[in-house]
Design a protein around this nucleic acid. Structure first.
Lengths: 347, 347
DNA sequence: GAAATTATCGTGAGCGCTAACATTCGAATC
DNA sequence: GATTCGAATGTTAGCGCTCACGATAATTTC
């Protein structure tokens, strides 16, 4: 069926051609300073001529310095996840690391074995992008068995206390959720409803705190799935209630679902109803009407996660956070409370 | 800085505990039938007790059966890419393969070396999700050096002829582009404009062919980038022209940009302007108004790509395509040509 | 100019695993 | 009961690479 697989060229082939030992070749490809310039040049020439390329498996087996990170995540099409990934990629590439991504199915329950077998070998460095239950579980498992090589982003779900700046990188979305809620209240809304994604307790906490600070009893949280469709279904009931004039959504996709539900229900935005999302996904600014939302620097978090991991691997002092703080971006889905909602008052 | 790294448990540790040779352990973890049930049980017990987990690097180094695929792609947040990835994941997981993903930067030019070094080793199996120039180049390079282990999806850009069902898996978006165009013409539109993504010549070809078949000279293609923002900018000029009544867009994101531009320009959809997208991304059905678009079974393509790769690796007959054909989904962004566009006529 | 350094390179072992070949042992065959 | 055979297991070698050393040559030091 196949012409004899041509044996890949190894370090020994290069060594022979260059007239040196295999170890010298190893030194060259690892940029060791212990090689004479002339020799280095000769080896490089041989490498080019033979088209030699180091075998990653052999390298990690032989136990050299670590050069790869495995990222565990679920839905890569979620904006936040994709951006975080991108951040990790950027930083890792710059540091000469290879990034391996392993995608988990959010619908599935994994055993510890399932999770650990995603890593190339025991103790391999990993970053978990934990935006849901599945990944949060994964992160607990990894943390348990190989804390020294694990870093997570997102986090805080399931009531799990996983704090510890030494391995968790996350944004302060709690504060900005409170700010967004306050913003809505300041426009005269009697209360703010919260449509939740299946995680992110911090956003909900910020929302609740802001309401309580204003002496308002938080209405029951409305739970939605991750899909726009589920947000739409859920929101239909919500928007049918004319007393609901302001909705804070767990992310932009949910907000889009709410906006569509409002449209179907004949409620105008922002005239009748104010909506705020989370993430500032690419579409937010170009939606009709443009969505008021929260800018979250996921890419920065991804970079931060990698830097933290690297520090754990190679030592050195803890890198300091270098990402933008979450910020409310006011566009056109938020406005003053509708007229008829104001009991009695000015014009 | 660190407590002595506890040596990972190896096949020999397991062997000793179970009182067998390491090779027997190897047989057990590889499900070889050549092991007595009692022995197998003993080994499994030892594995569990020690928490043994095979080292992937060692395995691939030792040259056993291939168990991993590397997927090369660019933007994982693009709907089509993410879905294709998901399809590959699904099929690979089912077959017991590990999926590694390596993300390329669409803005960057890679050398052959850059690309090949993404693979764990020379000749490692790869799938390229080729939706743009960068990935198309990557796929050419891989095809050149290791054709027997490479499969691509998407393809056909840059005027490159890369056909060959033995390694390219793609959807017939040409035909459906023609169908979409014809559909618009049937509603009375004098012509259809095409807003192109930076690839996908086939969609454009289908569009042009449909127009020509109707005796209409295709208007100049309008080129956009991948972002919604660029689509918006580009579309502003287009929608300013009242003669433009129908726009076919390279994907849904572009369509959203066009819709927003139309909104800004005061043109109503579908009253004034008809718009069709490509992909049927999750938001399409929940946009205001819901977007007429084309359903493309990217996930099926991903599965197909993996099956094809597997067949190349393990032999066997070529798997037959098993994905849905592209289909036009008519929603609410398409309608009859605006009144004033009709020279003279009925009511 | 002999001893002590330093730069440069080579040798041997081993990472954890699998392929290929040997070996053992009980059951089947005649 | 000697022979054959197959099932079950063990032994050896080696995948491509890096580490820890040892060896050699080129300098420097006094």
């Amino acid at each position: 069926m196949s012409a004899a697989e041509p044996r890949a060229v190894s370090i020994f082939d290069v060594a022979k051609l260059a007239g040196v030992s295999h170890q010298t070749v190893s030194r060259v490809i690892n940029d060791s300073p212990q090689v004479a310039d002339a020799t280095r040049a000769r080896v490089h020439a041989a490498i080019t001529e033979l088209g030699y390329r180091p075998n990653r498996s052999a390298r990690t087996l032989a136990g050299g310095a670590v050069r790869s990170v495995t990222v565990l995540t679920t839905d890569t099409s979620l904006y936040g996840t994709a951006e975080t990934l991108r951040g990790v990629e950027d930083a890792a590439r710059a540091a000469g690391f290879t990034v391996l991504i392993s995608v988990l199915d959010p619908e599935q329950t994994y055993s510890e074995d399932d999770i650990l077998s995603r890593l190339p070998h025991d103790g391999a460095p990993a970053i978990v992008v934990a935006h849901d239950e599945t990944t949060t579980r994964a992160m607990q498992m990894l943390q348990k068995t190989q804390a020294r090589a694990t870093v997570a982003t997102g986090g805080e779900h399931l009531g799990v206390e996983l704090d510890g700046a030494d391995w968790l990188v996350s944004l302060d979305d709690r504060t900005v959720a409170a700010r967004a809620t306050k913003y809505l209240l300041s426009m005269g809304h009697a209360t703010v409803h919260y449509l939740a994604i299946p995680s992110k307790a911090s956003r909900r906490a910020g929302w609740a705190a802001a309401l309580e600070a204003a002496g308002i009893e938080p209405p029951p949280v409305v739970h939605s799935g991750w899909t726009i469709g589920s947000a739409y279904e859920t929101a239909l009931k919500l928007v049918a209630d004319p007393d609901v004039t302001a909705i804070l959504c767990g992310n932009d996709d949910l907000a889009f679902g709410v906006l569509y539900a409002a449209h179907r229900a004949g409620r105008t935005v922002p005239g009748d109803l104010s909506v705020i999302g989370f993430d500032d996904s690419p579409l937010a600014a170009y939606h009709v009407p443009p969505l008021t939302t929260v800018d979250l620097d996921f890419r920065g978090v991804g970079r931060g996660a990698f830097e933290l991991l690297r520090q754990k691997l190679e030592g050195g002092r803890q890198p300091r956070p270098a990402w933008r703080s979450p910020e409310l971006i006011v566009r056109e889905t938020t406005g003053p409370v509708p007229r008829r909602q104001i009991p009695k008052g000015q014009s």
